[in-house]
Amino acid sequence: MVANIISNVATGARSKGIAAVGPYLKSFSIVIVFVVISAFFAVANEYFMTWLNWVNLLRQSSINGVLAIGVTFVILTKGIDLSVGSVMALAGMIAASLVTSTNQQFVLWAILGGLGTGAALGLLNGVIVTSFNVPPFVATLGMLSMARGLTLIFSEGRPIPNLSESFRWIGGGSVAGVPVPVLILFLVFAIGWVVLSYTTFGRYVYAVGGNDKAARTSGISTRSVIASTYVISGLLAGLAGLVLTSRTTAALPQAGIGYELDAIAAVVIGGTSLAGGRGSLVGTLFGALIIGTINNGMDLMGVSSYYQQLLKGAIIVVAVMLDQFRK
C-alpha cells in the first residue's frame, strides 16, 4: 500500500513534467502533488474528504506551517535554522509560567513573553552567524541544544499545567468555525508573502541568498538582512510555541523535539533551494499541507506511524529529485 502511494505520487509528478506548460508549471507543480495525494486518500477513505477532517488537517498542519514559514526566510538567505523546535519549547514554557504566575488578564504578557523569547533567541542566532561568522548549521545546532537545556533548567524537567481559559483559546478556540491556529497560519502566511513579494526587505532576502557579495556591492547591509531572517524564524517559533502549549493545555519540557526537521522538510518539498535565492512561501505552505495530509490520511487508514516516517522521508527525497530533474 505504501508502495502504491509512492508510485501514485511519482506518476503524478512525472506526468506534470511531461506536460510542458511552461514556467508557470513550477509554482503549480507542488499544488498538483498536493491534489494527487489528497485524491488518493479521498479514494482510500471516505471520511478524508469531509469538512470536519479538513478543519482538523489544517489545524494539525498549522504549527508546522508557522515554523516552516519562518525557516523559509532563513533558507532563502542560504542559511538554516535547526533550533526552532527547542526555541518553541522554551517560548511555550516561559509563556505558561507567566500565565500561571499572574492573573488571567495578563494573558497578553504571556503572549509577549513567548514571542519575545523566540525573537531574542533568533537575534542571538543571527548575531552569532553574521558577526562571528559561525556557519548557520553550527550556530543553530548549538542553539537547539542550549534552548532545550534552558527549557529543562527553567521547568526543572516538570510540565506547567493548569493554564487559564483565555490562554487555551489560542490553540483550542475557533472563530466562525475556523480554528484559531488555522487563522494564525493564514495570517502569518499573508504577512510573510507580502513582505517577501512587495517590500525592499523581501527583495534583499532573495538577493543576499542569490549572491551575498553582489548584494553587498549593491549597497545592501547583508548582515542585518541575514540577522533579521533569524529573528523572524525565532519569532515565529515563539508563536508556534504559544499555539502548541495552548493546545496541549500544558507546557511540556520535551515539546517540539524534531519539529525543526518537519519544518525544513516542508520548505524543501515546497521547492525552496537550500543553496539560497530561490523559493516561495506558497511552496512552503503547500509543503506543510502535504506533510499534514500524509500524516492525517495515513492516520485515518490506520497505517502505523513507523510507515508514516518512512513515507515522509521518501517524499522529501522525491520532491528534491523532481526539482533537480526540472533544472
Binding site: Y206, A207, G210, N211, A214, I220, R278
Partner: peptide, 15 residues
C-alpha cells in the same frame, strides 16, 4: 560580485 545570477534582469537592475 556583480550580479545575482539566479535573479531576473529587472530585479538586478533595481537592486
Amino acid at each position: 560580485t556583480g550580479l545575482v545570477l539566479c535573479a531576473s534582469i529587472a530585479h538586478n537592475i533595481a537592486l
